[in-house]
């Protein structure tokens, strides 16, 4: 049996237990990523996108818990591995550039020591000359000089630190790189450098990238296929051009329309209302309270995701034929 996808997520459900009841951060999400593909997950705060990132690496901590679903990496079910087996998969097969990763570098250790530590922790220690060669090549890959290895994090700019984090994530040449908001808090010029670096290294390695973010503009330029999250659900997914040219889900349509452009001034259009509470999500489609096309069925039944055009999935009753 040949699996065309390197990573497959099926019916993933992740809840956070709170005194007021479970918060359904990820509520039945399925998607698949092909080898070498750049897939983006876009959503607003609280949509569940970062929770998905952590679930893929089995890094959800209590009170969060994966309730249901499956995550397979190259045919291996990650959710069934022992903790020790999972530790060996991390970094070597699937790695994470965490949100705000550049601020989690150890301030009192030189970059080379931190990279060496990562290798040791994952049983791939290199010593002496071999490590020096390895480090030089690794830093070059992300566009940094060899000298950066001997520096401390405070001596580096935000963009350089983020590239160090990318270097760490690719140090064992994983098949999948999960990048959670890799450019948040970076200046716009530096954003371009970081995304450019990420794109270059993933194509050299042939690794798939799952990029998570809230900025539709950034997504439009950094991934090949996008999934749109809303209130814990994947409401639409399509190739980048299809999604921006002909979005199907009303949330995606309004979100794209709300983004300011530079082609002449126009009245800015927001989306009325606010995202729902995940503690008491509305019945039916979570977007129905804000949706201009709401129908009766939307208030009671969550529409299933369906392929309405080749490769273009949406979960919306507007396109359901009775």
């Amino acid at each position: 049996m040949s699996e065309p996808n390197v990573l497959r997520v099926e019916g993933l459900r992740v809840h956070y237990q709170t005194p007021a009841g479970p918060v359904k951060a990820v509520d039945g999400v399925s998607f698949a990523v092909r080898p070498g593909e750049r897939f983006g997950l876009v959503g607003e705060s609280g949509s569940g996108k970062s929770t998905i990132a952590l679930s893929l690496l089995r890094m959800i901590k209590p009170p969060g818990r994966v309730e249901d679903g499956s995550v397979t990496l190259d045919g291996v079910e990650l959710l069934e591995l022992t903790d020790e087996e999972m530790r060996r998969v991390r970094l070597a097969r699937i790695s994470l550039v965490a949100q705000g990763a550049m601020n989690s570098l150890n301030p009192v250790k030189r970059i080379r020591e931190q990279i060496a530590l990562g290798l040791r922790e994952h049983g791939a220690a290199r010593e002496g000359r071999a490590f020096d060669t390895f480090l030089t090549e690794l830093l070059e890959r992300v566009g940094l000089r060899r000298g950066v290895g001997d520096m401390f994090p405070h001596e580096l700019s935000g963009g350089m630190k983020q590239r160090v984090c990318i270097a760490m994530a690719i140090s064992l040449e994983p098949q999948v790189i999960v990048a959670d908001e890799p450019t948040s808090a970076l200046d716009v010029v530096v954003q371009w450098q970081v995304i450019d670096t990420l794109r270059r290294v993933q194509s050299e390695l042939g690794a798939a990238v799952i990029q998570i973010g809230h900025d539709m503009g950034l997504m439009a330029h950094s991934v090949e296929r996008i999934g749109v999250m809303y209130a814990g659900k994947l409401v639409e997914s399509a190739a980048v051009r299809d999604l921006f040219r002909a979005p199907l889900h009303p949330y995606t349509q309004l979100l794209i329309a709300s983004l300011p452009s530079l082609d002449g001034k126009e009245r800015l259009q927001g989306i009325a209302g606010s995202p729902p509470s995940l503690l008491n999500p509305p019945a039916g489609c979570p977007f129905h309270p804000r949706c201009p096309f709401v129908m009766d069925v939307c208030r009671t039944t969550m529409p299933p995701p369906r392929e309405h055009r080749p490769g273009h999935f949406a979960a919306c009753h507007l396109y359901e034929t009775s």
Binding site: Q191, M216, A220, R241, S261, L262
Partner: peptide, 8 residues
């Protein structure tokens, strides 16, 4: 450097 919400 602005990533506009238009892939083209």
């Amino acid at each position: 450097s602005i990533p506009l919400a238009d892939p083209d």
